[in-house]
Each structure stands twice: as C-alpha cells, then as structure tokens.
Write a protein that binds this DNA or RNA. Structure first.
Lengths: 244, 244
DNA sequence: CGGTTAATTGACCCACTTCAAGCGCGGTGG
DNA sequence: CCACCGCGCTTGAAGTGGGTCAATTAACCG
C-alpha cells in the first residue's frame, strides 16, 4: 500500500468539497497501484489508447491536448497535484486526447478493476470521484465561455485567476505565487491564440502591474484587479464543503 | 412509476455504450419523479440555483448558457432527448450556468435522494450515469478544440456533424435530417461568433451544397464532405458498446 | 563557442465584428 | 381583411483583434 503523502493533494482537493472518512482514505490508498516519475515533455497517455489504469498527479503539471490536421494543437486542460489526468478513461475506455507532462511529474496509477471495486463498496467515495470529473467538466465550460466571448487579455487573466485558486486549494501556492512551468507557445495552445499574441498580451498584464511571470512561477500582484478584468467568479469551482 | 417510453431515448443513448439490465431499467423508472412540459424560451434552471432534482430531457432541445457583464451570452452545450440537462447538479449542488428550453420540452425529474440510492444499490448503473456526464465533458473538450483552432466555417460544420450523429443515436434523426429549432443568434452564441457571421457562414455551407437549414430542420446533403471540412472524428462520442 | 530553444519585435494581412439599413413573414388588433 | 408590429434573416461598408511571416535577442548548454 502506498504512502498517504502521495495522495495528500487529492485529499485536500476532495476534502474541500466534502469530508472523506478514514475508511474512504484507506480504500483509496489500497486501490493505488504503482508510483512513477515522468520527465517533462513525455506523454502520459495518447489519443486512441485504451488505458487500464487512471492516473493521479501527485506532483507536477500536465496538459490534455488534441492535434489538428494542420499540425495545430489545442490544450483543453491543465492539471496539477491532486488532479486525476484521465479518470474519465475509467469509463470512456478510449482516450479521445493526449496527456502530456509539462514538467517532471510524479503520478500514482489506479487500476480500473480497483476503481470498479470502489464503485461496488464505497458509494460516497464513488460520488466524490465522480465529482472530481464534474469539476473538470465545469472548468471546460468556463473555458468555453472565456474562449467564446472574451478577448485574449481577459481570457489570460481568467486562466491565471483560476490557477491561483486551484493551486491554493491543494497547497502548492506560496502566497499569491504559484508554479506554472510552461512556455508562451504552450499558453498559446491553451488559449487558442498565437504565441506572438500571447507575448504581447502578457506584456500588457505586466504593464498593468497585475501579473509577473518568471522562471516558471506566476505572481499575482493585484488579485482584485485581475479578477475584475477576467470577470472571475469562483462559483464554477464549487469550493464549498457540503454533503455530496 | 412512469411510463418507460419517456426514458426510451435515455436507454438508447446509454445502451449504445453498454447493456442496461432489466433491473437497472426498472431502477431508473422507479427513481423518476414528475414529468413536466416546458415551453420554448423558459429557463429550466438558473445560475446559482441549488436543484433538488436532476432533469432528463425526453423531448425537445435545451441549451446550457452563461451570461457576461456586457450582456453577451455563451452557450456551452445543447441537449436533446435522452440527455440529462443537469445531472452534474446532483453532485455539484449549485448550478454554475443556466439551462434554457429552446423548444417546447418534455422533461422527467429525478430527485437527488433517489440518485443517491442508485449509487448505493446499483454500481453498474451508477457508472453508466457517471458515463453520461463524461460524454458531456468529452463534447465540451471537442468544442474547445474547434473553438480554439478552427474557423467559423469548420466549427459550424463540426457542430452539425456532431448533432446529426447524436440525433441518430437516440432515434430522432430522419435519414440525414434532424430537428434543430434555434435562431441564427442562438447559433452565434454557441459558436462564439456574431450572428452576422453565422448568417454568412451558413450561406457558404449552403452554397457548398453541404447543408440545408429550413423551419428548424437541418438536412445534411453531403455528409462525407461536411465531415472532411470539420475534420470530424467521432471517437470523442464513444459510441462503442462494451463493458463499462 | 556553435547550437538550440524561448522570448520579443515590426510589418502587413485577414477573419470576423460592429453598425446600420432593408426585407419577409407570421401574429394581432381594429 | 388589412395595417401594423416585431422578430429573424440578409446585406453592405468600415473597423479591429489577432494571425502570419520574418528577423533579432536572450538564455542556456554541452
């Protein structure tokens, strides 16, 4: 059975939404398979694969992405410690996107048969895992809104507000700073804009004295202003603790 | 207990992904609460609400939407017969978007306590309901890809390919025709473009002899061509029947 | 010190927006 | 039965956010 430390970010994340009992924590520890380290730039999963485990990110940053015929790429999600990168693979069975390690990552695998057992024996824990995928989904919807109806500047501001909050929840933020080790080209693929425009937009955020971004660390200098710019409302992250 | 007919589209949709046993079908029928008709333009659910039931769409068309400060609107999903419009409300507890009836709709409500009971007594059915929300999520991701990296023309083509297939799955398509009773302004809010541009883009799809759109019905005239234009690959709809 | 990758900048271009006006049609009230 | 209204669709013209191309600089690395 694995060390509970590896799951602490997950416990933080789920615990922020509802209490997890000791039996449930133990069930998760027992369901865990092997622990691996994956180096930056490697794919954790590829389009079309049929995974037999789901992968919890214990440390690092990953991205879900799809490629287009012209070689373009769209990143549809980032994941940090405490996130499952492909829990949906448990039931979807076939990956409809790739998952790439954007930094060195530590991951814990959960064999699908063990997850089936959880659904048979731990209804509340099952709902919490289901919830974890619903939170992903809520973030997708929010990205659709910002991508569809906001300028690059607002969109980028929104992404940074979101990540600050997510980083705080799992305890990897340091004050208003959090790690975000991606290139401007990666960010462009997430926002659906060109890397040239990312560069100019970032400069604007800097000149507005809202954000700094150095050596893979983002500092939010003026959170209230950034939130206003992004029309950020954290409802969609569902951070209330309540019976689920 | 309600008439099984009201759930037939749901059975079609789930049954396309895995077998549902008689006991599971019956459990769903027993979990159902009241049946209502909602007239076009009405909200089924609003931002910030805390629903006590989840709503299955048995007939009609609905849209999830978010509003922006400037009065703009982004539609993040359409739902047709057999789709739950807010199954995620079961665990998210608070709605992070509105749901609007785009046509007259027949809906079946499922009280959340009944869904809790399903998670306690029917693990496989629970996984199938979970799957239903994962399919929503997969569609969100696909929209992110098309919205981020495709032109309005390709995006619109993609949406129509998607809806043709979804309509076929639940049996509301007639050949290559399906109902889609929305205005061009609604479509603009879904694609994240202006209604003027929707109009011009639709004209182009028509002039390419790929699509017709009259009286709320879409006819796909040349599906292969439309798919090529949209780079449409149905993997993300996960239409294979297999153990889940 | 060459080689590579990321960040930056300038110049020009285009997909899509905005604004504004006109049109077709079903619904309604007199 | 018709005049009018409102909504959705259509079209034109002008403006802009962001794209593309291409070159330069900066940082790192063996």
């Amino acid at each position: 059975m694995i060390d509970e430390d590896l799951l602490s970010a997950l416990f933080n994340r789920l615990g922020q939404r509802d209490d997890l009992g000791p039996a449930e924590r133990q069930a998760l520890c027992e369901a865990a398979g092997d622990v691996r380290t994956i180096s930056a730039g490697r794919d954790i999963s590829r389009l079309g694969e049929r995974p037999k485990t789901s992968t919890l990110l214990s440390h690092g940053l990953t991205a879900r992405y799809n490629l287009l015929e012209d070689g373009g790429r769209q990143i549809t999600a980032f994941h940090i410690a405490g996130d499952f990168v492909d829990l949906h693979g448990f039931l979807l069975k076939t990956m409809d996107h790739g998952v790439r390690a954007m930094s060195e990552c530590t991951v814990v695998s959960f064999p699908h048969p063990a997850l089936v057992r959880i659904t048979e024996q731990f209804p509340h824990l099952t709902r919490m895992l289901w919830l974890a995928t619903l939170l992903d989904s809520a973030i997708h919807r929010q990205w659709l809104v910002t991508k569809g109806r906001m300028t690059a500047l607002n969109q980028m501001a929104h992404l940074l507000c979101e990540h600050l909050l997510r980083a705080k929840v799992v305890g990897i933020a340091v004050g208003n700073r959090f790690p975000f080790p991606i290139t401007q080209a990666d960010l462009a693929d997430a926002l659906g804009i060109s890397s040239v425009h990312v560069n100019r937009t970032l400069q604007e955020l800097r000149s507005l004295e809202l954000v700094e971004w150095e050596d893979g660390w983002v500092t939010i200098r003026y959170e209230a202003g950034l939130r206003r710019l992004a029309e950020f409302d954290d409802t969609y992250l569902h951070l209330r603790q309540e019976p689920r």
